[in-house]
Simulated scan of single mutants.
Amino acid sequence: MISAWLSPLRLGVLLGLAVLLAWRWLPRWSRRTALVIGLVLAWLTTPFGANLLVRLQEARAPAADACPAPTPEAIVVLGGGMAREPRSAEDYAALNVDSLRRVFAAVALHRRYPDAQWIASGASRYAIAESTTMARLAEALGVPAAALRSETASRTTWHNAQAVAALQPPLPRRVWLVTSALHMPRALYAFRAAGFDPCAAPAPGIYAGPAGPGYFLPIASAAAKSEAALHEFAGELSYRLGLFRTTDRDPQPASGER
Rank of each mutant, 00 (worst) to 15 (best):
I2E: 02
S7K: 14
R10P: 02
G16C: 14
L21I: 14
W23D: 05
W23K: 04
R24A: 12
P27A: 07
R28M: 06
R31I: 09
R31T: 03
L35C: 09
I37M: 10
L39Q: 08
V40M: 14
W43M: 06
W43N: 00
N51V: 09
N51Q: 07
L56F: 03
E58S: 07
A59H: 10
A59P: 03
P62L: 04
A66Y: 00
A66N: 01
C67Y: 02
C67E: 11
C67P: 06
P68C: 01
A69D: 14
A74V: 07
I75Q: 03
G80S: 02
G80Y: 02
A83G: 15
R84A: 13
E85C: 04
A89E: 15
D91A: 08
D91E: 10
A93M: 08
L95M: 13
N96E: 12
V97M: 11
D98S: 15
R101L: 11
Y113K: 00
I119M: 04
A120I: 03
A120K: 01
S121K: 01
S121L: 07
S121P: 08
A123H: 07
S124R: 10
I128G: 01
T132P: 02
R136D: 13
P144R: 02
A153Y: 07
W158I: 00
W158R: 00
N160Y: 05
N160A: 08
Q162E: 15
V164P: 02
L167Y: 03
L167P: 00
P172M: 09
R173G: 10
V175Y: 04
W176P: 00
L177E: 01
L177T: 03
T179W: 00
T179V: 05
S180Y: 03
S180A: 10
A181G: 10
L182F: 03
H183L: 09
L188F: 03
F191Q: 00
A194C: 07
P198N: 08
C199W: 05
I206Q: 09
Y207G: 00
F216I: 13
A224S: 13
E227G: 06
H231L: 03
R245D: 12
D248C: 05
P251R: 00
P253L: 06
S255H: 06
R258F: 10
